[in-house]
Design a protein around this nucleic acid. Sequence first.
DNA 1: CGTAATCTTGAGGCTCGTCAAAACAAGTGG
DNA 2: CCACTTGTTTTGACGAGCCTCAAGATTACG
Lengths: 238, 238
Amino acid sequence: MRVLQTTQAQRLETIGRLRYFEHWNAQQVAAIAATANILAVDKGHELVTRGKPLNSLYLVITGEFRFFVPIPGGQARSLGLVGEGRSFGEACVELAINCPYSGVATTNSHVLAIEGTAFKHEVHKSTRLLSQLLALVANRLMSVMNDLETCAQHSSLQRVACYLGQFQPPGDASSYAVPIEGRKKDIATRIGLTPETFSRVLTTLEQNGTLSSKGKVITVLDAARLRQIYLNGCEPGY
Amino acid sequence: MRVLQTTQAQRLETIGRLRYFEHWNAQQVAAIAATANILAVDKGHELVTRGKPLNSLYLVITGEFRFFVPIPGGQARSLGLVGEGRSFGEACVELAINCPYSGVATTNSHVLAIEGTAFKHEVHKSTRLLSQLLALVANRLMSVMNDLETCAQHSSLQRVACYLGQFQPPGDASSYAVPIEGRKKDIATRIGLTPETFSRVLTTLEQNGTLSSKGKVITVLDAARLRQIYLNGCEPGY
DNA sequence: CGTAATCTTGAGGCTCGTCAAAACAAGTGG
DNA sequence: CCACTTGTTTTGACGAGCCTCAAGATTACG
């Protein structure tokens, strides 16, 4: 990881292109640009570490980051991916606490690192920015609650069914595609399973016609049956 | 559950006694008091339900509520307790989404129900109130992340060790008390175990001198060993 | 003091994790 | 374009750990 040498003008320009700052006025942007840095992060580098202080918040300009909770002597628990234009670290910066997760670059990436205190200072003067940040943190809370519900399911079948059910579009289409970003391994650990078990469950569900799994493309074919599996658990026949 | 007939003066007086509103000025308090109600909730009544809209946020005046995620055909996953002076529902109200958890009164309780739209309207006009709410939601996020980490542990021993480790006070005292509010059953499901397994793990840890468990009082006696269990997992001898 | 709820203890079955190896996919350099 | 490397996914066999069911002990409460 290295800090790119940038001028204030360059940083302003970068920030100006990010939708994250679309409600920020020129003065607010200038204040945080003055303390910001652009970092080049190599693939595989751990930019933030669970338990360590987090003095900046980060915005992904290009590339992608994977987040997880490390577990002593075992598979880390995945939390998800953050791609271009999205951010992380707000809640830690806000509370000035140690980071509860680790994050590594999945690709060579560029990130904008914004000094936490400057960010807080600007945001806390504006109801508009505070509202925006509040919504972001609240959404993150809901997302984690959702994960928590999924891994609270008893059986591996139910966990997978619960996970896949999230992606059902509004309406009652019985067939829909499930987006798989990143590795299946990460989906597995995210819902509290090993990659092996996750793979086995997918083949089971494929064999009984509930879904089709071809490489990185999973398609739910029978949403009603998926829902039955979720509700009934280990009903005989599955 | 019944709505108590109250006057604006009574509601103002109730709100005035709650620390939650200590940074609210008279005008702000008056605005939400106008839309508020005081509810008497019987023990066991489910005030909020997972998946249902939540149009109010709630403040517990007297009594206590238990929150959980219901799981089809099995033990619900506990989320924790909310006692007097504390609140719930902010994040749902903010995002205007369905409630991700259910909550029941553990005792006959009185709660202040505040109309969500009025609350939002007032809060979003003030940087001070927004900051307060942001901190509250961020803290809740961290709390859930913490739970998530605990139930991500592999073995039941590690989960319990991880849970108990949270309560270690700063410094390196090897002995400390663990507060148990509510039922052990709820601690168990909160960390992804059955009550039976949780009970067994406690007796195991008691037999090897790591802690003492007498009814509702758990005392960690050997914090260093607890930490070893957490780190090493199924090390022989435990 | 009696009823209800919670907690503990016991026995057994089954799911899931572990280990290991093969199949597959993707990216690299010649 | 193809061999090679690296990393991910799949498949198989096996065993441990946890959940389930059930009954007893303990606590809380009216």
